[in-house]
C-alpha cells in the first residue's frame, strides 16, 4: 500500500528574522484507502506540516523523515514530490494571471503522466471535474484562480484533485471560508476521490464541520508542532464539544 509515513519530523519556517522551529517531532502514519483528519488550534503548525511535506521554499525540514509509498520526499524537489504521487490542496490557492486553468492543468497532467492528455477527451475531462464541484465550464478558460471567490478557489482545488488524481492528497483547511452548501459539495468531491479505494487523504482542519460530510477513519490532534492524541471519529465529536483546551493546557 502507498502509505504516507512521517517519523520524527522537525521543520522550521524561514522568515526575514531567521528560522523558527515549528514542527517538533511529528509521527503519523496514513494508509491509502483511509481518510485521516488532522485537527488542532490555530498556530499549532498544521499548515507548516502540509507545506514542509510538499517542499515550500519557505519551510525547511531539519530532522526526521516523510515517505510516500517508500519514497523519501524530503530530499526531492517540489515537482518530484508531485510526481511521487503527492498533491497539496492549499488554504490560499495562488493566482497566476494570464495562464488559463485548462492550459495549466494540461501542462501539469503532461508532466505527471509523461504524455499529453488526449486532445479529444481532455476538454470533457476538465468540464466533468469542474461540474463535479459546482463550477461551470467557463472556469477552464479563466486564469488560474484569478478573480475567483474564496469558495471558487477551494472548489477549483478539488477539481484539480480529480483531474490529476494523485496517490495521496493533503488538503489544508479546504473548508475554511466556505458556506454550508460549498462545504457539502467540496466534501462530496473529496469522498468521490477517496471512494476509488486506493488513494490517501489527509484533511487538515480546525473545524469539525466538514467531517460531518467526509467521515475520517482516523483523527490526529495536533498541538504545538506534534501529534498529541489519535483516535477515530469519536475524537472529532469530543473536540466539537470540549474544544482544544484540554490539549493546549500547559502548552500555551
Amino acid at each position: 500500500m502507498a502509505d504516507l509515513i512521517i517519523r520524527g519530523l522537525h521543520a522550521d519556517v524561514l522568515t526575514e528574522e531567521g528560522s523558527k522551529p515549528i514542527l517538533k517531532g511529528v509521527d503519523l502514519t496514513a494508509k491509502t484507502g483511509e481518510i485521516h483528519a488532522i485537527m488542532g488550534p490555530n498556530g499549532s503548525g498544521k499548515s507548516t506540516l502540509a507545506y514542509a511535506i510538499s517542499g515550500h521554499p519557505k519551510y525547511r525540514i531539519t530532522a526526521g523523515s516523510v515517505t510516500l509509498d517508500g519514497v523519501e520526499l524530503s530530499t526531492l524537489s517540489v515537482d518530484q514530490r508531485a510526481k511521487a504521487g503527492l498533491f497539496l490542496g492549499m488554504q490560499y490557492p495562488v493566482e497566476v494571471p494570464g495562464v488559463s486553468m485548462a492550459n495549466f492543468l494540461r501542462t501539469a497532467k503532461t508532466a505527471l503522466d509523461g504524455v499529453a492528455p488526449k486532445v479529444r477527451s481532455w476538454p470533457k475531462e476538465i468540464n466533468a471535474a469542474l461540474e463535479l464541484v459546482g463550477l461551470d465550464a467557463t472556469f477552464g478558460a479563466r486564469s488560474v484562480n484569478e478573480g475567483f471567490s474564496g469558495g471558487e478557489k477551494k472548489r477549483a482545488e478539488i477539481a484539480q484533485l480529480h483531474i490529476l488524481n494523485p496517490m495521496f492528497a493533503i488538503l489544508d483547511e479546504i473548508d475554511s471560508g466556505l458556506d454550508i452548501d460549498a462545504v457539502r459539495e467540496v466534501a462530496e468531491g473529496i469522498n468521490t476521490y477517496a471512494a476509488q479505494g486506493d488513494r490517501g487523504v489527509l484533511l487538515i482542519t480546525h473545524y469539525t464541520r466538514i467531517l460531518r460530510y467526509t467521515k475520517p477513519d482516523f483523527v490526529h490532534v495536533f498541538v504545538d508542532g506534534k501529534v498529541v492524541q489519535e483516535g477515530g471519529q469519536e475524537l472529532a465529536d469530543l473536540l466539537e464539544v470540549a474544544g482544544y483546551e484540554r490539549f493546549t493546557r500547559g502548552h500555551a
Binding site: G55, H56, D79, A82, L88, M90, V99, A111
Partner: peptide
C-alpha cells in the same frame, strides 16, 4: 511553488509564468 506542486518542473513553471505575464 503552486505550479510545481502540481508536477511542473521549475523550468515549465517559469515558462508558464512568463507566458502568462505577456498573455
Amino acid at each position: 511553488f503552486y505550479l510545481m506542486s502540481r508536477g511542473l518542473s521549475s523550468s515549465e513553471a517559469k515558462r508558464l509564468v512568463i507566458q502568462g505575464f505577456f498573455y
